[in-house]
Design a protein around this nucleic acid. Structure first.
Lengths: 211, 211
DNA sequence: CCGTGTGAAATTCTTCACAGCT
DNA sequence: AGCTGTGAAGAATTTCACACGG
């Protein structure tokens, strides 16, 4: 229902949703921006402003209905759907991704997997058949996926991203340590623990309590 | 050697370093901000501005010496040192972290690992002995680490972060799906593929090429 | 001429502060 | 009395544009 929502805002919404899920599980019915912000180390004003991009979900004087806001956020983010996910590259990391229950629990269902190695292709992991890389396009045409997780070596990653984008995949979560390029309309996000650590060490150089 | 460098800037430096590493390996001697920006989808002005926080590394009319700039960035980020890393939580993900060569290749050496399960504690993975959780404090006192990777279940994560911080660990890379709190002076970064995916689905709701 | 380094302008994002509803 | 929703102020970040050096 709208657009030019800042990307930073969209990126915070899943955190709000997760905190609300926890509050709901703890039996909380109502939460203020103050309280929610405390959990997440985000200012109350930030939360209210973020939510205001999408509508008015709170009750003045009371706060937000936990279940109600959670449901709204899930709808906004598209978490009330089932998403089909494929994994490309079934090495150690790819296997861990395939076997991680946290994705399915949030509606991300692994429906296909691909690997270049003959040793791996043909196996079945958590009920997902691992196919050879050259079956990628045919498989995507037959059974489309919404999101691809790329866990191939760096040298192969850009080509995989190109093939996935050409095959109609609209979101790619890339674990390979490259800055992947993708055509417009394809959302790419990077997961890169080494780069994240490298930014942390900048702060460790300082003798002690930096800041 | 200075301060209040914006965090966004620090977070981009490892990407510059990585691109330079690749260029150096490809035999490139000199690179312009234009070219480097092309690789990374960052504007040339952004790169020049970022670097200008730390000094003047380029040559007008030519660009940057690839090796020279890389060395400077590595020094700025502290990548010219060896960092001691421990892993807390040796489940599937923790094992993958212990066994991933990408960390050691960048100077992040796994020197200790901890797990609450008796089935895992006592084993040795890639030369790293897995200790019981209650040995954490004693181990850190005996052999300090600079950085901890937290790969325990969500319910245990905050307590682990507290104990690590109390034990003198100054940087924590948290894979558990919680917003971890840490005392000032302790740098915490989050790796959360589910949250990342959840932000991507926001863009997938739109019928097609959404921007 | 080409490309850096950088003030200044433009833009984006966050915080303030308060009117208004409950 | 408490807390949302939101314009407006303020801060942070990015981009512009150009003087200057190679």
């Amino acid at each position: 229902m709208s657009d030019d929502i800042p990307e930073v805002v969209v990126n915070r919404l899943p955190l709000y949703a997760r905190a609300l899920t926890r509050l709901a599980a703890a039996g909380e019915r109502v939460v203020s921006s103050q309280r929610l912000g405390g959990e997440l180390e985000v200012t109350p004003a930030q939360i209210r402003k973020d939510l205001s991009y999408f509508g008015r979900f709170g009750t003045q004087g009371r706060g937000y209905d936990v279940d109600g806001l959670l449901e709204r956020l899930r709808a906004i983010l598209g978490l009330d759907r089932r998403w089909r996910v494929c994994v490309v590259g079934v090495g150690r990391l790819g296997q861990a991704v395939l076997e991680y229950e946290g994705f399915a629990r949030q509606g991300f269902h692994m429906t296909a997997a691909f690997d270049a190695s003959a040793a791996v292709a043909g196996r079945t992991i958590r009920g997902v058949a691992v196919r050879a890389m050259d079956e990628l396009e045919a498989s995507l045409a037959r059974e489309p996926v919404d999101i691809a997780v790329v866990t191939v070596p760096a040298a192969a990653a850009q080509e995989v991203v190109d093939r996935l984008a050409a095959g109609g995949v609209r979101a790619i979560l890339n674990y390979a340590p490259i800055s992947a390029h993708a055509p417009p309309g394809v959302v790419v996000r990077q997961i890169d623990p080494v780069v994240t650590m490298q930014a942390m060490t900048y702060h460790l150089k300082a003798p002690d309590g930096d800041r």
